[in-house]
Design a protein around this nucleic acid. Structure first.
Lengths: 348, 348
DNA sequence: CTGAAAGCGCTTACAG
DNA sequence: CTGAAAGCGCTTACAG
């Protein structure tokens, strides 16, 4: 395979100059740069990442950690991040936790990660508070998406989960509902995954604003999945008289809820209204009312905030994004989208 | 950061021995190995991938190329592949084509990829025939998933697309349908993406077996997405009398079809039956009848076929998987799943 | 079974 | 603006 000295020989310069010219460093004359580029082109030369990384101390790689790539939010984020990283010249190392404790450990093998990537992005990754502190002491630049995981000194992009759930609940209240249930996720409170807690707070706040006292028997813990929504709703129905409406903490739970309701012969929205949070690709197909959150935008913005201080191309000195502004999350707006799954309650 | 000579010093051996012990090479005495592992543990040592790759000539990395990570099939495949790769000690470099020609070019910058990864997996990646031949001449081991992209001498894992579409269509015929439409994808025939062609063949074969002549006005080209199914169905309905049933080439298209039908007031399945192919996570929620294909299994199996000849850990000589058996795809079974979106046609 | 030494292919001070 | 030389941190023949 062609090496840098092949290019140097053809261009009649030293390897140092080839290295500089190819990376676009300013200390190369236009004429020399031109000759080097032509030689590299002619030989179809590509730099060896391993050698470049070893010599330069930079990997040109970013680790992106998601809980489950199969869920709408995460695949949408990753798609946007992949585009931004690759067009900035970075490689994307994917870590899908898949709920496996073993993998969580792997991500926290900090010495390992540190030698592998220049920076890392944590997307709604449930970590113990101690883990987050450990990450913060790393020399590794990082960024988080969602309030679920918050590492000190790393910038954070997210939505206002309290406000999103409040808007969903208020929509139902405005339609005339009072018996409003809430299904949410992740009962494993050993992990500091706060998204579901924030959304519950929003739900309760909206109820209280309307003078309705939150009823604990209408509030079910489950997981942020279709199946989780299904099971939560089944349990809800087993507890007695059904609510007239359900706020699901995410669209996938809402979809599970719709299935569970249908299975017992309850119609949406005639018998029970359902609203979610996300605006999943399929929310439109299902006619699901929801509070939309900008997933791709969160990914793109987080990637940008991560890479900007590193320099667009993997070259130049690494500057950790620390200090000013890092502890103030960037909060992107959400928006209520009314479709067919919500309607006024039936008159008794 | 700790380096290999720190470990060597602590264990009282040479760096060569540390290297061998840590990689589990057999030529190390048990006592020495034990001392080395203890020292590495004590120092929290992790090998430098860049140095190891440069010296060893292996990257321990696999490129996984998908058209769109946000689609059900691809995220499901990637999840399974990620698990297999990581537990085998490999890193996963994600390439999401996203329909961008520019990115396709990037994947085919073979010199670039070659220095970056030990092997690559192409998942239903549309490539020109010339591109596939180019990949085949690389020294890079590879594997493809789906009949969509077929690289000579690379193993391939897929389903029988003809049979899947035939089963879907036959299900409708068995219910009594005759006016059966077909919506399928990817009209860009510059790319050798054969999945939609195979599925069309299966549709037509089933019709012919039942003595029905395929009607070209009932066969619409679009894209393999929700929106594609939506548009195809809208066009179908604009052409005149609706069919009594629709075969969609994938579940996402079927979901788009359901929306389009609902939008004009046609009920599924009372007015029009709809069947898909995939068994998407949400097929159950939507009550969509479909022909299920094992996405995760295809991913896991392809990863296994790719890595087995490389050795479980990224160590030992690279052996290209060539010759015997590579030109015979591994075909995984599909299975009809009947739900609520299909029913006999209404009596006129 | 183990070690000394070369070498993997770059980048980076340093000197000019 | 350019080059000679050292060095990044490993692995791999080679020799014993």
């Amino acid at each position: 395979m062609t090496r840098i000295d092949d290019v140097a020989r053809l261009a009649g310069v030293s390897t140092a100059t080839v290295s500089r010219a190819l990376r676009g460093l300013p200390t190369v004359s236009a004429a020399t740069r031109h000759r080097v580029l032509a030689a590299a082109e002619q030989l179809d030369y590509e730099v060896s990442p391993s050698a470049s990384r070893l010599a330069g101390g930079r990997t040109g790689t970013v680790a992106v950690v998601v809980p489950r790539i199969t869920r709408w939010f995460f695949s949408t984020v990753v798609e946007a991040v992949e585009e931004y990283l690759h067009q900035s010249g970075y490689d994307l190392l994917l870590y899908n936790l898949g709920g496996r404790e073993q993998v969580r450990q792997r991500v926290l093998r900090t010495a390992n990660l540190h030698k592998r990537v220049d920076a890392m992005m944590l997307v709604a990754t449930p970590l113990r508070p101690a883990d987050m502190t450990a990450l913060a002491t790393l020399e590794l630049p990082g960024v988080t998406i969602s309030s679920g995981s918050r590492v000190p000194n790393w910038p954070c992009v997210r939505i206002d989960d309290v406000a999103a759930a409040r808007a969903a609940t208020k929509h139902l209240i405005d339609l005339g509902h009072h018996r409003i249930a809430h299904i949410s996720g992740d009962p494993d409170d050993e992990l500091a995954f706060t998204t579901h807690l924030d959304r519950r707070r929003g739900y309760q706040a909206a109820l209280r604003s309307a003078g309705v006292r939150p009823d604990p028997t209408l509030d079910i813990e489950s997981t942020f999945t279709i199946d989780g929504g299904n099971r939560a709703t089944a349990e809800l129905l087993a507890r007695g008289e059904p609510p007239t409406a359900i706020v699901a903490a995410c669209d996938e739970m809402a979809m599970g809820a719709m299935t569970a309701l249908r299975d017992v012969g309850l119609r949406v929205p005639q018998d029970v209204s359902v609203v979610g949070i996300d605006d999943h690709d399929l929310a439109g197909v299902l006619g699901l009312s929801t509070v939309a959150q900008p997933a791709a935008e969160q990914g793109r913005l987080a990637a940008q905030m991560l890479l900007d201080p590193l320099g667009a191309r993997p070259a130049g000195p690494i500057v950790s994004q620390r200090g000013a502004g890092c502890d103030t999350p960037v909060v992107l707006p959400t928006r209520l989208v009314v479709r067919d799954s919500t309607a006024p309650p039936r008159a008794h």
